[in-house]
């Protein structure tokens, strides 16, 4: 009998601490499914960031390094350089990557560091309780944007499209944006992750998969409403799809699978 659906080997069979409806859990699952498919469990290392996914290391059945807030790409740079035959995953939230860690993210990408960043964009600071993130949409409320993000009068700046910004750097080879708000998007996102991981193992440059993710708790809406909000508010601003693909052509089946 063929096994159609099971628990990924690389994901420990424990209940997560994430809130109901949170996107992090789904993203963890996608990562581990791809690792299992690639047979990389023994050679995967995750750099887990400061953010709700600080818990990531509890759930993944492979090694991890926890770094200071935002320094994730710096840590990942060094881990990958020391262990080039390993699959190195730099897991970051939007605050971690696009605020405090912008310098590290930009320069690791520019150097073309050969690890993969999984960038979880939930347009908010989840762990610290709902402050404005660099990716918070204009008008979106946050505890530090009590009247909504106001780029002009309050000088809060505009939401950052990270991939489009990094696409100008020669070091980036594969940039794609997915979402986990419905089954179709989950499937596509898995394809992006697989493509990025495989490119990493072939030794190509910097690869980043941004994933739009729900944070119903800090958006103060129900899990069901939150998947709708990704669709109606986030996707129109953060367009899904491959932003940059300069990977060397390979006879791959992944391209097909991710369609």
């Amino acid at each position: 009998m063929e096994l159609i659906y099971g628990h990924p080997k690389s994901l420990k069979p424990i209940q997560t601490k994430y809130c109901p409806g949170c996107g992090h859990g789904v993203i963890h699952r996608l990562i581990t499914e791809v690792i299992d498919e690639m047979g990389m469990q023994q050679k995967s290392i995750i750099l887990n960031p400061v953010g709700c996914s600080i818990w990531a290391s509890i759930y993944f059945d492979f090694d991890s390094v926890q770094v200071p807030h935002g320094r994730t790409p710096a840590g990942a740079t060094a881990v990958k350089r020391m262990l080039p035959d390993h699959l190195v995953i730099c897991y970051q939230g939007d605050g971690d990557l696009a605020a405090i860690g912008t310098a590290e993210a930009v320069h690791a990408a520019n150097r073309g560091e050969k690890f993969t960043t999984i960038f979880v964009n939930n347009a908010i600071y989840g762990m610290t309780g709902g402050q404005m993130a660099p990716t918070t949409l204009v008008g979106q409320k946050a505890t530090t944007a009590p009247y909504g993000r106001d780029p002009d009068e309050a000088g809060m700046g505009y939401p950052i499209r990270v991939l489009e910004m990094l696409a100008t750097l020669a070091g980036t080879k594969y940039l794609a944006r997915g979402a986990v708000n419905n089954a179709a998007n989950v499937r596509k996102t898995k394809g992006y992750i697989k493509k990025a991981f495989e490119a990493q193992m072939r030794g190509e440059g910097s690869s980043i998969v941004e994933i739009l993710s729900q944070c119903p708790t800090n958006w103060a809406i129900s899990p069901v409403e939150s998947v709708g909000w990704v669709e109606s508010a986030m996707i129109p601003f953060y367009a899904l799809g491959v932003v940059k693909d300069e990977l060397a052509p390979v006879a791959d089946t992944v391209k097909e699978a991710s369609k």
């Binding site: 605020a99 405090i100 600071y125 762990m127 610290t128 309780g129 402050q131 530090t144």
Partner: peptide, 8 residues
């Protein structure tokens, strides 16, 4: 400032 628990 910058957010951090327990001063948020």
């Amino acid at each position: 400032g910058y957010p951090i628990t327990p001063q948020s």
